[in-house]
Design a protein around this nucleic acid. Structure first.
Lengths: 165, 165
DNA sequence: TATTGTTATACTCTATAACTATA
DNA sequence: TATAGTTATAGAGTATAACAATA
């Protein structure tokens, strides 16, 4: 990676094209920051956004949440506590396990998430529209293939025939 | 973005390919985490790594640093203070402006940065090697074109003929 | 007066360790 | 005893506001 790519700033190599590695790194930063900015517009951090995103179609226990977010359970407690204080999520006792707590999204949480998601999608679409339609499709397919292969390497099937959970 | 893409986890749409937006978001997360992991192996955060990356070929003032990192000057003070305490950077008075401070990389800082960069480059290369060489080149070129167009939109030329600075 | 940088303060995010309550 | 979750504590990272020193 060139120094400037590492800094996330503009590049000035002598070739008229970024190296594959620099391109990947730069693209990652650009997209990550789009997400960060759109989340911030709703006063959400990336981790808060991911929390809400997980809750959009699930109602996990604190423990499951910690695993999904790859966080310590104490970090998850704090994260959920702050989100609950803002009225974005609620905690309720599990009916089947007296120790467990179920976390779910409130209407306010859902609205905030939807706002961020819609704006981010527009950003991502605008970024891709720099390419003509045909090449956009090629890019999309190649990215998909890379991700599928990368996931498969880790024993994850991105497209299981049935929902397994 | 689908709920699962927002969560950064595996996806299960019914089509055998990710949507363009989901692919972009997923790819961004995957690459960002590679960088995060490799930096962490050197006990560096992403922001510390970016700091060192900027210093690899520059010796900016605190003020310039704050602008490059898009951080408040007070945040930059703290960031540099912690890096200096670890012996990764040094602060010295500017010879031309009695108020200014110049920040530069130490040998230790350079080594740490190099270690993270080399490992990250290997990760990125491995990710791309999931595609045959020809398609890898196509992907690389398309990503480059998207980034160049995106930068141009913001008045930035990714490939200026001369170093301007 | 304006600019450069640091410091005080406050909040988010994270982990480790110690704790409570339930299984 | 083991598991689920919270709390205490500590540190990184961030911003705002107040400040000191220099231009």
């Amino acid at each position: 990676m060139t120094p400037r790519a590492a800094a996330g700033g503009p590049l000035a190599p002598s070739e008229p094209q970024l190296s594959a590695v620099d391109g990947l790194a730069q693209l990652s930063f650009v997209v990550y920051r789009m997400l960060e900015r759109r989340a911030a517009e709703q006063d959400l951090s990336i981790i808060q956004t991911r929390l809400l995103g997980i809750l959009r179609d699930r109602r996990p226990t604190m423990n499951e949440l910690a695993k999904l977010l790859v966080l310590d359970k104490s970090s998850t407690s704090g994260l959920v506590e702050r989100a609950e204080r803002r009225g974005l999520v609620t905690r309720s006792p599990s009916p089947t396990d007296g120790r467990a707590v179920l976390v779910s999204l409130t209407g306010d949480g859902r609205s905030l998430l939807a706002g961020a998601a819609i704006r981010f999608e527009a950003d991502a679409a605008a970024l891709l529209e720099h390419l003509p339609r045909t090449e956009r499709r090629v890019l999309s397919r190649l990215i998909s293939r890379v991700l599928v292969a990368h996931a498969a390497e880790r024993g994850i099937d991105l497209f299981p025939t049935f929902e397994i959970d």
